Simulated assay, not measured.
Amino acid sequence: MSKRILVVEDEVQIARVLKLELEYEGYDVLVEHDGKSGLEVALHANLDLILLDVMLPELSGIEMLRRLRKAEVNIPVILLTARNTTLDKVMGLDQGANDYVTKPFEIEELLARVRSCIRHNTLSVKSSNETPLLSIADLVINTETREVARSGISISLTPKEYDLLVYLLTNKNKIVTREGILMHVWGYEYEGETNVIDVYIRHLRKKIDEEFSPPLIQTIRGVGYAIREN
């Protein structure tokens, strides 16, 4: 069965090109031109991926994404943005985006990101079905319900924080490199500032280590990170 992609893009010509290119690759494509109608489709259609422009009429792409995640709709989202600052990228990822592409973009790069994002999500679902619980010490993740708790206390994580924690726990007691984190959590070979990892590690530490003992996330200087009990 073909994977179904929703394109939410207000520039008609760009939307048309994306639809043609994606359909040529074998995807089933839906198109909306504003955030309000895009949100309606995303909430009710059976989708595998959303390509979401940030600057949209009616409802911005970031606000549409925020409402989707608030409604616990975890469809992978790739943001299409003309902005190119670390702050804008981090804001989008913090709202639950899985990836982003900066305009203007090469269509082959976008298609590669689409394939990677869908593949990563498929593997995550498969992994969740096979191993619903991940744990270390008193930290437990239920990958079926995406619930995270430490010492029985529920912890709220953003989608990207959750993905990062799952990757660390999947490799518990092992050192994971920054390159490995970027590839497996962001789903592609990142070609920009890597301090986004530091931002997310800092957020995770504040949520799962700051109020608990012992601290679990360790920095391996010059290499990467590890999650372990000592």
Rank of each mutant, 00 (worst) to 15 (best):
V7I: 12
V17P: 02
L20Y: 06
L20E: 15
D28Q: 09
D28I: 00
L30Y: 05
E32R: 14
H33I: 14
K36V: 07
S37N: 09
G38T: 07
G38H: 02
V41I: 13
H44V: 11
N46V: 15
L47R: 03
I50M: 14
L51D: 00
V54D: 00
V54W: 02
M55I: 14
P57W: 03
G61W: 03
R66H: 08
N74L: 15
I75V: 15
V77L: 14
T81A: 09
V101A: 11
K103T: 11
K103S: 12
E108R: 08
L111H: 00
L111N: 01
A112T: 15
V114S: 01
R115Q: 10
S116E: 14
I118F: 02
N121E: 13
L123P: 01
V125A: 09
K126N: 08
E130A: 12
E144D: 13
R150F: 06
S151D: 15
G152E: 06
I153P: 04
S156Y: 02
S156H: 06
L168C: 07
L168S: 02
L169Y: 07
L169S: 10
R178F: 04
L182A: 15
L182V: 05
G187L: 04
Y190S: 09
H203L: 13
L204V: 01
P214H: 06
R228V: 02
